[in-house]
């Protein structure tokens, strides 16, 4: 479904040149969920932004369905690939009602049947019709993220790019959104690329993942390997350790309990 070959993203020129992503390659099959893990500055979000055209591709190729994506992206691309952003407080237009936000993609692509499709999209993400005419400030963080997911799903894309979709949310809300994403993927046969700094979240949603650091690939591994603590690189192991919580001495028995 999605092929990333030797992707490079470079900002600036000369002495100010910054290589945000250096030679990253991976393949995501149809219906698969693929994770990109790393700390800030690892270039994981830049990979997503480069795929959808928000960051420039300086080298390498991005193929969707076996075809190289055009620059600038065309409407057909946006019907295939959609994105959900990290901060639901920033990704909804503050002066637009949910209804307006959701009718926008339909209007852009000249789709008919807006009424029923908006109602259906709201149902899909677990929001009732009572949410339709609210403004973002009348919604909680989790509800906003649901609206953002509904917006991304309206055009019936095949690939969903998820940029830290739960990191701005409370733990209990995160669980709800993760369940929703899991369910949507199953029901709609979606392909996911999930970017997150949280190993547990990535392992929960994805089967395979790429660990990145300083714009480079550290290793490609599987969620199963993470769960059994079989990482090839020291860096991944240190990420796993850090995700277990704070420990005064490295091996504290109960630290494995909560996450």
């Amino acid at each position: 479904m999605l092929d990333i070959q030797n992707l490079r993203v470079t900002y600036g020129t000369g002495r100010l040149q910054v290589d945000a992503v250096k030679d990253v390659s991976f393949h995501v099959g149809t219906g698969e969920a693929f994770g990109l893990v790393g700390e800030s500055g690892s270039g994981k979000s830049t990979v997503l932004r480069a795929i959808c055209g928000l960051a420039p591709i300086s080298g390498g190729r991005v193929l969707v369905d076996g075809r190289e994506v055009p620059t600038p992206r065309d409407k057909a691309f946006y019907r295939t690939v959609q994105m959900v952003f990290q901060d639901p407080y920033a990704s909804l237009h503050p002066r637009h009602t949910v209804d307006r936000t959701l009718s926008e993609p339909l209007a852009i692509h000249g789709e008919k049947d807006a009424e029923t499709r908006i109602a259906q999209a709201l149902r899909e993400v677990g929001l009732g019709p009572s949410f339709r005419f609210r403004y973002p400030h009348q919604l909680s963080g989790g509800q906003r993220q649901r609206v953002a997911i509904a917006r991304a799903l309206l055009l019936r894309p095949k690939v969903l790019l998820l940029d830290e979709p739960t990191s701005a949310l409370d733990a209990s809300v995160q669980a709800e959104i993760l369940n929703l994403l899991d369910e949507l993927r199953r029901n709609l046969g979606l392909t996911y690329i999930l970017v997150s700094h949280d190993l547990a979240v990535v392992a929960h949603l994805c089967d395979r993942l790429l660990v990145m650091r300083h714009g480079e690939t550290v290793e490609e591994t599987t969620a199963a390997a993470l769960r059994t603590n079989q990482a090839a690189s020291d860096y991944t192991r240190s990420l796993i350790n850090a995700s277990q919580g704070f420990s005064r001495d490295a091996a504290r028995p109960e630290s494995a309990l909560t996450r």
Partner: peptide
Amino acid sequence: REAKHPYTQGLMRCLPTLANDVRPLPT
């Protein structure tokens, strides 16, 4: 682990963990 209050218990359970794969996550 012996938390009594359902809120504390819920908070602990709703986090995805590397150790065990619960699906769907308890909300």
